[in-house]
Amino acid sequence: MNHALDNSLEVPPSVAMSDVVVLGPGTFDHPQPGEFLKKNHPVAAPVARESINARLEIMKYQVSLPDYEHCVADGACKPADPRRIGNVPVTGVSHIDAEAYATWLSARTGETWRLPTDVEWAYAAGERFRGDVESDESDPNNPALRWLAQYRTETALGRKPDPEPRVQGDFGINSKGVADVAGNIWEWTSTCYIHATMASDGAGIASSIDNCGVHVVEGFHRTYMSNFIRDGKRGGCAVGTPPDNLGFRLVRDRPSLVQATLRRLGLS
């Protein structure tokens, strides 16, 4: 989905459909993102029945470095860090960078592009989705026990360090036709991190606080990063081993029939 930036060249009206996977509506069970406490002890995330009620259009591949560099050349995006070459996913980008690219792409194509929610990403990931690294150990007087247990759990998953981005498609395609899911690129979402307290009787969440300075990132497993972080190995809010790389893919929102009609009439 390369976009010409020279004013003498025609800007493509949309991203090629071959670069977008269209998924129909569906329902699935999904562990909720965030931190959950019950009686001041950390507990596993509750599982909710989630629904995708309309078709979901999501990029088949993560945004590539060449595509991102068009945004940089247009002055709408900051250069990625570190700089790499070739047809690989862009990495070294923060949540802020990803939002800037989505805004730029929307303006250039006349369409609406945005980061997926945690639920949308999990739906598109299908069998490759893996939730948070959890641990059953909990000692309020010694939280290090839980952290160590989480590291042991993640180690048991068999993840190996893999810092260099690979060419698009190298991690294969999942059952839904989406490429490179849960490879060595963790992907930003639009879902904020929450700190929630479970009801004492176990019947749902009693209260929660959103922290939108931290967002959910999805990859080999789900974790959380501060919005300004471009390299997970340098810090942030990740649990366990930091992400190898931070990148993203976008979803496209289609206007409703009413919205499309108003747009054609110049009324929106």
Rank of each mutant, 00 (worst) to 15 (best):
A182V: 00
R130G: 00
T27P: 12
Q150P: 02
R55T: 04
G24C: 01
F28N: 05
V216P: 03
H3V: 10
S135N: 06
Q62D: 12
H41Y: 14
E218T: 01
R130D: 00
F248S: 01
A107G: 06
L250Y: 07
N227D: 14
F36R: 04
A122V: 01
M198P: 02
R49T: 11
A16P: 06
S64K: 06
V216W: 02
D210T: 15
N2T: 13
D231N: 12
P66A: 08
K233I: 05
I229Y: 05
P89A: 06
V133H: 00
N184I: 06
P12W: 04
T112K: 05
D67R: 15
G158C: 13
N227H: 09
A73T: 11
P82I: 09
V47A: 08
A45M: 10
H221K: 09
I205A: 11
P116S: 10
A4C: 12
T117F: 02
D231A: 07
K38Q: 15
R152E: 08
G235H: 12
E69C: 03
Y193W: 12
L250C: 07
S200L: 11
V15Q: 13
R130K: 02
L257S: 14
E218H: 00
R254K: 11
G240P: 06
G26A: 09
A44L: 10
T241D: 02
C71Q: 13
I205S: 11
L148W: 04
T103F: 05
E164G: 04
P13L: 07
W113D: 01
G110T: 03
S138Q: 05
Y101M: 06
P161F: 10
P163W: 13
A4S: 12
N141A: 12
A199T: 13
S138K: 01
L250Q: 06
F28H: 09
H41S: 12
H3G: 06
N7H: 11
L246Q: 05
R252Y: 01
S226P: 02
T189N: 01
R234H: 08
A206Q: 13
S208C: 07
G240N: 11
R263Y: 04
A48L: 11
C77Q: 03
S268P: 03
N142W: 11
V167T: 14
R264K: 11
A102W: 08
C77M: 09
S226Q: 15
S94C: 07
A182G: 01
V216L: 03
W186L: 05
V251W: 00
G204A: 12
V181C: 00
G34P: 07
S207Y: 08
N184A: 09
V93T: 05
A144G: 08
R254Y: 10
K39I: 05
Q259T: 10
H30R: 12
A100C: 07
D6T: 09
G75L: 09
D253L: 09
I185Q: 03
A124P: 00
N184M: 08
Q62L: 10
E164S: 10
N245F: 01
A179C: 10
N7S: 14
P46I: 10
D210N: 14
A125C: 00
A102D: 05
L250A: 08
V133N: 00
F220T: 01
M1W: 11
R128D: 00
L9S: 13
D244S: 13
E50C: 08
Y123W: 11
L9Q: 14
K78G: 03
P46G: 13
L23D: 00
I185D: 01
